[in-house]
């Protein structure tokens, strides 16, 4: 793998994400090998695979936090929602949501004013001044999502956004995310180890192999929304994805 073969293009216009032949290793450990994927503007692409298959590395690459050792990456500005919510414990829910705006240079008052309507949309009215430690897991996740949306990037990279939630909160938050994306479409890369979640939320599911991660299958999910876990189409695709993983 030569560094000269790496090409990372950051277009501000098209919200399309294209990866070709992307490979990366941490020292001796090869995390990703020959990854190719494409997410059309406004599309939700789920990336599933066993733990340690380089899914998080893939998102880091798309977000420009890591330069891959080989391959071509074409992506506009992408913002990462890291595993666990990573809310800052000293900031209130409102200030956590507004963090991206503060970083972008807005004053505290401007940032709060801009973040407030979104928190209200997310059903967090009345919790603006609450600190993360006093919010429930689902609420924290929604605040983190608000922060990610307010970064204003055309591409969102969500790393196991529902991983830490209990089953019921998880289902609610998934439904809420599906609704939010329907209202304001963005190109989304959703990393998860839960195949059902991938099929419920995504337009396409990419199945990765164990480390070093490579693409085992790309499944198109052409099912009407909203979807339920019990829909025959969802069940069939879930089985198909699981077969691809074996």
């Amino acid at each position: 793998m030569e560094a000269t073969s790496v090409k990372v293009a950051r277009s501000q216009m098209a919200a399309e994400v294209v990866l070709e032949g992307v490979a990366h290793a941490y020292g001796e450990v090869r995390a990703l090998a020959d990854i190719g994927l494409r997410a059309a503007p406004g599309e939700v692409v789920a990336i599933v695979g066993p733990s340690g298959c380089g899914k998080s590395t893939l998102l880091d690459i798309v977000c420009g936090l890591i330069t891959p050792q080989a391959g071509r990456v074409e992506a506009p500005r992408a913002v990462l929602m890291p595993q666990r919510d990573q809310l800052l414990p000293w900031l209130t829910a409102l200030d956590n949501a507004a963090l991206a705006l503060r970083v972008a240079g807005a004053s505290k008052a401007q940032a709060r004013a801009a973040a407030h309507p979104l928190l209200k949309d997310l059903g967090l009215e009345g919790f603006e001044r609450t600190r993360p430690a006093e919010l429930s897991g689902g609420m924290r996740q929604r605040v983190a999502f608000a922060r990610t949306l307010l970064a204003g990037a055309p591409v969102l990279c969500l790393d196991e956004p529902f991983g830490a939630l209990d089953a019921l909160t998880r289902a609610d938050t998934q439904a809420w995310l599906a609704g939010a994306l329907e209202r304001t479409p963005r190109t989304v890369l959703l990393v998860t180890h839960d195949v059902e979640e991938a099929v419920l939320l995504a337009d396409a599911v990419i199945v990765l192999s164990p480390r070093p991660g490579r693409v085992l299958a790309t499944l198109a999910v052409e099912l009407p929304r909203p979807r339920a876990a019990t829909d025959p189409g969802v069940v069939a695709l879930r089985a198909q994805a699981l077969r691809a993983m074996r």
Partner: peptide, 23 residues
Amino acid sequence: DRLKLLRTLGASRWQVLRFAEAP
């Protein structure tokens, strides 16, 4: 991961210090 979050939001070195490290 906390520092990674700041970087993905586009924070400069100074902003990482101000918004994440110092607090």
